[in-house]
Amino acid sequence: MAGFLARRLLSYAVLVSVAASLAYLLAATALDPRSNYADRTPKPPPAVVDAQLTALNLNDKTPLLQRYATWAGGVLHGDFGKTVTGAPVNEDLKRRMGVTFRLVIVGLICGSLLGVLVGALAAVRQYGWFDRLTTGLSFLVLAVPVVVLANVLILVATWANENVFGRYVFLVSGEYSDGLTTGFLGHLVDRLQHLILPTISLSVGLIAVFSRYQRNMMLDVLDADFVRTARAKGLSRRRALTRHALRTALIPVVTYFAFTFGALLTGATFTEKIFGWHGLGEQLINSIFSNDVNTVAAISLLAAVAVLAASFASDLLHAALDPRVRA
């Protein structure tokens, strides 16, 4: 078991380092930090620009492999280099990680739990009104990209704030209001007001995906022999479904979780950017515009780690739910 885990972690480490290196090389080739200086007035002399870029390890006159070696050496020591403005990448990302983490976790929990619940209910009453309604809604939701959904949410919330509530119930920008003096409870409410729309924007898609998948998995096991055995024992339909069918149908859904995680990260990126949350996703988009190679590479590495961690977590969860794979 230990040997197996070690091999697995090693292969993860290889994947992460290759992915991050690839991201760095791509970013270093495609992005052009030198252009940042072009628009400055007064235009700095080329020698100064060169010196600054070299200090940041961003000088395109240095051979690519040499820049890569410098970067990789730093990363191995836990140093992701400097941003284009000269600030350490580590500091910036450390602050932003918490923001993204909060958003993703809340979205994930809401999305998967509600999705599984909705899917299971829909399957139990197949063709009932609930099934039809949720099927229709999930089709609709799956057709709306996050960028549209988020904007629609903002439009609707703005309208509702003005016309329904008459005050700001939904806050559409940032994580919290600055300069609040309402004490702990007030802060909490303020954070919730900010959290609500981004969470909806992130988890509605997940709910749709998970509910479709859970519904189909449920329907697959509804006809299974073991559910028939449970019924033949004298269990009522409801008990046979919840105790035997739902429990078993959860297993494939858990493995599905790993597949959706990458998409979730992308969704979080859009959500952050549109709702003005200062998380990793927003920074990624900003840093591409600002030709910030080191930040881009660092965020890619974190994303790779997150995807693999999710896949590992889903395997652990799979093993916890299914005695057959535990053995």
């Binding site: 022999d225 073991f226 449970a230 033949a232 035997h244 078993t248 739910l321 299914d322």
Partner: peptide, 15 residues
């Protein structure tokens, strides 16, 4: 009570 054909699938795998 009933005994089914396929014993491999007649029992719930997770209990």
């Amino acid at each position: 009570s009933m005994v089914f054909q396929d014993p491999l699938s007649a029992l719930t795998p997770v209990y």
